[in-house]
Design a protein around this nucleic acid. Structure first.
Lengths: 348, 348
DNA sequence: AGCCAGTCGTGAACCGGTAAAGTGCTGATT
DNA sequence: AATCAGCACTTTACCGGTTCACGACTGGCT
């Protein structure tokens, strides 16, 4: 009885073994393990005991095949692997997702793809094969081709991005436009008139939104909003963009960045060019990972709890999967966290 | 013929539909799609055409169930989600893995677990259920309990860690001991005599190896190697450890860190305490992500291409899965990359 | 013509579960 | 006593593939 039930090596334990040991049919075992009504408490207990003794638990693959939902959530990322490692954003985002998934014993299936076409094909296969129970879509572009292709699929999906970009998919988003406007107004209030922005790739939806809001707010304040550079989101490019902004005639006295890694790179460039932060140059980061607190002076940032953002995305996805979801889902707008890197410009 | 083959909505296309359209049995379709001998080139072509027309591809879940290997690789991480996002290491490591997986159209299944017990149970389930074709084990401890439990499973596995820790599993590792020794010798050669080390958690295998090598090398050089602090690998703790080292009597003139995020935090502490780097204090990071190049002065580091490390791990795992693997697999030893944060101590 | 080997393809069993229909029994209702 | 609802299981038919034993046909050889 209490012998450490040694299954015959080589053959795996299946539901049949459990059924045999418990003296019931495999249907009964299935009923018990899905706790549906249909077996008596006594039998149920006997079944669980047998399963425990054999160390059996249901084979997920077989379960999925016969129509049950899998606990795996898919995430395809369309960008070069090398770049991925450079951005703190993704790992924090993923960690937030994982936090919620782990609560429910779910896992995240991660895959890098080369282009959106491959991404669509992948989702189609994942869904057809019941490999995933739902997916998280990120990095929306304007008129994103995934919208049409994936809508037809009927796969539970949550889109990360502003509703204007995500084509009716349940979405989670932050109000980037307001945040960008706030950033500009804050710097203007400090007395800056030449404010620049180092943004992400032009095609990317949220970069576009921030760029537009930046320009609009600058215009509203009667300032020239054309000092914007689009980059690929990595430090090197942030540094390059910063150098080019700072060496241009009429150089800016403040720069807003689209993430924190570029802002840190910008701070290094300032130091290298002998500019004092914030006296000669104010720097404002975005996303605010711990990086911002580690530099000297610490970077002011449009703070944004990316981990919690990921959590919200995962929770929304579960809502969609379970059919209890409710429209777009806005998470807190990035808020200004002033630290040492922003201040009034030096009087000329 | 060329009509955009509209499958009946609601019902998915299966191998049977393809077989029917091609006028063969489903066995033949299977043979064709696994390109095994048994069908004539003509029939084969007819089958492929039918499949293309219906937009069919084999259901991976069903395939897995009937014994084929899945293209999914498992990775369980045993640490709080919040911490995960703070370490550049993991995302870079994962990006390296993904790079190799993507080449072969494989995905990474990621899961956070609370403890090693849960991790073992997870791997057992993944393997039993054929959810994964193999797994990557990280963060080995001394006498790691996973070794015994997983050996019995027979699952293809690659262990990340020194062979002395990974209990005979195929492993990928860097020579941390030599690297730690080199770090110490370098600082000693610059004239430092009070060298401290801010390390990772004491229980963690590679932290232990570095700690031992640090102490041994210090002893060899006739120096006091007891200035070591164990932390949890995050910036805050690195800062705290640095402060406590710097406020102790006989404060060190050089500190070696176990990763880069703590080194950056250390640099900020130095600045905050008004210590000049490297004149008053030399700082040496480990792992060398782009962070090290973004601070001012840039941080010297024991450089280590983490992305490539991840790639090598994935490649080794495929070797194990395909049965072509060959013993432990050492990747390049972290090498000293001097930048601005290390120099001779100021003469007292 | 008769035999054999080789190729092409079929059919059924199987992977390990789920779900719906079916069976036998108990006890309450009329 | 007959009817019938409800429970506790069992049976059977899937899910969508793979695999393997076997049959039909072809062609070469004696």
């Amino acid at each position: 009885m209490s012998a450490p039930a040694s299954p015959i090596p080589g053959r795996r334990v299946t539901i049949n073994d459990v059924a045999a040991l418990a003296g019931v049919s495999k249907g009964a075992v299935s009923i018990a393990f899905n706790n549906r009504p249909g077996v008596s408490p006594t039998t149920r207990e006997r079944i669980f005991t047998a399963a425990r003794e054999l160390g059996w638990s249901p084979n997920q693959t077989a379960r999925n095949l016969s129509g049950r939902r899998t606990g795996i959530v898919g995430l395809a990322l369309c960008r070069p692997a090398r770049l991925l490692g450079l951005e703190p954003f993704y790992m924090e985002f993923i960690s937030g997702i994982e936090d919620v998934l782990a609560e429910r014993s779910c896992s995240l299936l991660l895959r890098l793809v080369r282009d959106l076409e491959e991404e669509c094909a992948l989702y189609e296969e994942w869904w057809r094969s019941r490999t995933v129970g739902g997916a998280i879509l990120v990095d929306f572009h304007r008129d994103d081709p995934r919208i049409r292709r994936l809508r037809a699929l009927g796969m539970p999906v949550v889109a990360v991005g502003h509703p204007s970009l995500t084509g009716g998919f349940p979405s989670v988003w932050t109000d980037d436009a307001s945040a960008a406007a706030e950033a500009v107004r804050y710097l203007a209030a400090l007395g800056h008139r030449r404010i620049a922005r180092v943004g992400g790739p032009a095609g990317l939806g949220h970069s576009g939104i921030r760029a537009a809001a930046f320009e609009a707010t600058m215009a509203e304040l009667g300032l020239d909003g054309r000092r914007q550079v689009a980059t690929g989101f990595v430090g090197e490019e942030g540094a390059r963009a910063t150098r080019s902004l700072l060496t241009a005639p009429e150089r800016p006295t403040a720069i807003v960045y689209d993430n924190d890694i570029m802002a840190v790179a910008g701070a290094a460039v300032a130091a290298e060019m002998g500019l004092a932060v914030p006296d000669d140059l104010s720097l404002l980061a975005w996303d605010d990972s711990q990086l911002c607190r580690l530099t000297h002076p610490p970077l002011s940032a449009m703070s944004h709890d990316v981990h919690q953002f990921g959590e919200q995305v995962a929770r929304t996805l579960f809502g969609v999967i379970e059919g209890t979801h409710t429209g777009p889902n806005q998470v807190p707008t990035p808020s200004l966290t002033p630290r040492g890197s922003t201040g009034p410009p030096r009087r000329t």
